[in-house]
Design a protein around this nucleic acid. Sequence first.
DNA 1: ACGTTTCGCTACGGTAGCGTATTGTATAAG
DNA 2: CTTATACAATACGCTACCGTAGCGAAACGT
Lengths: 217, 217
Amino acid sequence: MRSSAGSSSSSLPLRSPSSEDPRVTRSKCTVIETTRQILKEKGFGGATIEAISARSGVAKTTIYRHWPDPNLLMLDAFAFNRDRILFVPTDDLRADLCDGLRVLANDLSSDEWAPLAPAMFEASERDAAFRKVSKRFMEEKRHPLSHRLTVGVERNELPPDTNVDLIASMLAGPLFYRRLVSRQTIPKGFVELLVDTVLSGVLTRQTLAGPLNKRFR
Amino acid sequence: MRSSAGSSSSSLPLRSPSSEDPRVTRSKCTVIETTRQILKEKGFGGATIEAISARSGVAKTTIYRHWPDPNLLMLDAFAFNRDRILFVPTDDLRADLCDGLRVLANDLSSDEWAPLAPAMFEASERDAAFRKVSKRFMEEKRHPLSHRLTVGVERNELPPDTNVDLIASMLAGPLFYRRLVSRQTIPKGFVELLVDTVLSGVLTRQTLAGPLNKRFR
DNA sequence: ACGTTTCGCTACGGTAGCGTATTGTATAAG
DNA sequence: CTTATACAATACGCTACCGTAGCGAAACGT
């Protein structure tokens, strides 16, 4: 599952109709980029129209012209349009899952969008529109994993009764947890340990109720 | 690991010195409870002193009297003082872990503090004081798991090289993930599947690189 | 019953952000 | 070159919230 498309740091986060006035496109992009920046630094509280206008150099009136409701701007700021990373499944399930998780771990460690995520979740908690954007974004993030697992089931690398959705949560969850909840680092080798543990578990799953053989040492 | 103390829904979230004027105690409790309520409903944006005063019936001046800085109030609102749940390890590791995770899953499904969590993470992202409170709180939440795992290693139920911290992340992470990130439910049986998978993985851990035997069906 | 503390209430000046209107300028399209 | 459009800049009224001050009433400890 080698990555076949790097994420570009294009400064054109919006797909804009080519019929659009270039001035409009430029303003929009500047504003969105600035908004994202402020959201990262100060969170929702700091992302006022006035602050965005001041830092971006785009006049307040222009911002209102393009986003009648400031919430629409926030939504656009969240709805990235990064180039999608394509994963091509190899025949090595473990390596593919590790690759996918490593990309995720990287994203979570960088400041591309991780510092923005908490604000996104906060907004999602109480607003359906944000919930929608956030959900779609997160589904994209985890798609490579789910996809590879699905393929794995089809190829009989995994048991036919494997619940792909739940296993994907077991793989992605711990990474998010450490970044956002416990605020610990994701140590070197964690991704591999995680994949090995979950994968071994899926392949040899058993219910270990009752006292265990104390076989260690 | 049966739970030996239920969580009380006491309306006295603060430990207050017994020497304190009962009126002070009452005001403080009312304000904190109201603040928590508003934070759940409207998030940080809605938690203004005026709103808290209006809904709680406690005068603005009184609030400022007790919390010179509104941020201190927010911190107090986050720093619950619920009765600690005590887990007593049994000799059934699996059952103990399931118990611990079920409590967590319950908390995450209820509206005791789960709706508040996103606001907490948002605040933690940019403020050290919130980070501290949040971290302590989360450590408490996960303590039963870590503790039981540590005991498990001591009792030779688990391999001696088990990294308790990382395994705890693998157990708690997926639950948080589904509640906060992917916003999916935690389906019945997930906790058990999770414990069985991770535990099996830990006990039989192996590196499954390369093509797998396609042994299914 | 008493003095003290804390309270709720109202009012106040100050600030930040909102959303709109206006005006003159730069720039793209024809 | 001309015209239409998008722009920046400024000003404005408005609202929400801030944080403080002063007051009389209520509730506490003794």
